[in-house]
Amino acid sequence: MRLTKSLPNFMMLTPFMLLFGAFFLYPILSGFGYSFFDWDGIHEPAFVGLKNYEMILNARSSRIAATNLLTYVMITVPLGVSVAFGLALLVDHFQGFWARFFRSVYFVPVVMPLFLAATIWRWIYAPNFGVLNLILGWFGFENVRFLTDPDVMLYSLIGVDVWVSAGFNMVILLAGLKDIPRHYYEAARLDGANKLQEIRYVTLPMIRPVMIFVVTYSFISALQVFDIPWLLTGSSFLDYGGRRDALLFPVMDMMGRGFGRLGFGQAAAYGFLLTLVIVAITATIFAFQRKKENG
């Protein structure tokens, strides 16, 4: 009886469920299955148990990728969110034309195709005729090899990443700022708060849900970093990660193992390990948020 009553609902959900099953659930489950096989995409897959996972966890390239990722995430997430928050505060300060102007200017990198952004930054970072080296030269600094010096490459990438992501995060944070009623700031002014104290005691607590979203999103994006370092280093599936693997990251390593060395089983296992890390970090952030809300 209940099933008959709910049948139209199920019918309406069916198209989505079919697509979801075919293009999302099946690839995930089959990928998980392949992670226990040795498969080059040509021959029959051979069951190897947890060997793929062992190989990844013991591989030197995985350790380099994980170390690079850790450094990258630890810097790019706080820096990117801080820059976006600063820009949001700045844009929020303006009204009318200037607010629209700055919002648009800062959002341009978000809508720009990544290959174009990478090309622009390769030109900015270029060793001899690059804009940045030109400017540094005016101040007497020596030429910096932003994209070939292994000690600098990661920071060059972070610069590009912050530039690309700041606009998107700024727009979200700006929406949060616009939602804060003005009387809280007026009360704070009367209470004797200066601008920094207003930000600390009014703005940040009031946009906490938005900030948590931005931080979580930034974490997830950062953990999956691939396209910008790939383009900046002019990588291919056989040669990637830049000089001395300075810009080697897990997703890149996973792609290289899959499509470069035709180790699709290893790539699948890599993907699952990365998924576990992302889920664990996201769950930790949400748990932290819930604890704060309840406490």
Partner: peptide, 8 residues
């Protein structure tokens, strides 16, 4: 204030 303006 009319809207109290208590920090939530």
């Amino acid at each position: 204030f009319q809207s109290y303006a208590l920090y939530p």
